[in-house]
């Protein structure tokens, strides 16, 4: 089962406490490149916290979270978990500067062929429809535009694993469809995805696994989340697109 060519992050016996109160605990979770996981839970159940743990941005109170099957980074970089699974904040942070600055910032991190990168940045601008905003200061963007820019920034990196925390919460339908396209393309390129979302949206139909946080436990099920209003909404979206 453990295929060494597939990159994954494994959490074992993880518990998270804040100020002595337990938020959640889980025996075993694995998030691999082949997964598209839909993470569900009530407000405050710990979805964002779980994603930050898996991203290596905060440390679990107990248990271990480890990365397997990733390319070895340079010997002088002992990063551990950070940077393995890219986490997109619920309210994304944009660096002080223009939209273009934020995109090239990402491009500089992806250590690939320069020409390919320039092309990828151009493609990202096209896909996220940011062309008319390139020289605007990132701090003046609207909520939905900010999320689109953050998505484009992640898309440029083409991460092995990507976690999207409510990626479409501020978006109108056309923007949601743009983002959906980008996510689909990443999936085809081999990125594993973990999505959290309140509203069922086009994203949910992509998912092949379901994590559900209830009663301070994370339930894992291998079937796609099915829910009648979700199907309804998805059909509505498709109609909207056509």
């Amino acid at each position: 089962m453990a295929n060494s060519n597939i990159a994954c992050i494994i959490a074992e016996h993880v518990t998270m406490h804040f100020d002595g109160k337990m938020l959640f605990s889980v025996q075993h979770l694995s998030f691999s490149q082949a997964d598209v996981i839909y993470l569900q839970g009530d407000n405050g159940s710990g979805k964002s916290t779980l994603m930050k743990l898996l991203a290596g941005l905060s440390i679990a109170s107990e248990g271990s979270i480890t990365a397997h099957g990733f390319e070895k980074s340079h010997w002088w970089r002992k990063d551990g978990l950070v940077g393995k699974a890219l986490y997109l904040h619920q309210h994304p942070y944009l660096f002080d500067g223009s939209v273009k600055y934020n995109l090239t910032f990402a491009a500089k991190q992806a250590s690939k062929n320069k020409q390919l990168l320039t092309k990828r940045v151009e493609q990202a601008i096209e896909m996220a429809q940011l062309g008319h905003l390139l020289d605007n200061s990132a701090s003046n963007l609207s909520g939905g535009e900010r999320q689109r820019l953050a998505m484009a920034r992640a898309w440029i990196i083409q991460p092995t694993l990507l976690m999207l925390d409510e990626p479409t919460s501020n978006m109108d339908k056309p923007s949601q469809l743009l983002v959906l396209d980008m996510i689909k393309q990443l999936k085809e390129e081999g990125t594993g995805l973990l999505l959290s979302s309140h509203q069922a949206c086009g994203l949910t139909s992509l998912c092949n696994k379901h994590w559900f946080i209830t009663n301070k436990q994370i339930k894992v099920s291998d079937d796609a989340p099915h829910n009648s209003d979700q199907t309804l909404l998805t059909t509505m979206e498709l109609n909207y697109a056509n």
Binding site: K52, A55, G56, L57, V82, G83, A85, L86, Y87, H89, H91, P92, Y93, F95, F105, A106, Q109, A110, R153, A154, I157
Partner: peptide, 11 residues
Amino acid sequence: RAWETARTLGV
């Protein structure tokens, strides 16, 4: 989030 974003983008 400035720190977290930079780190998670691979900096």
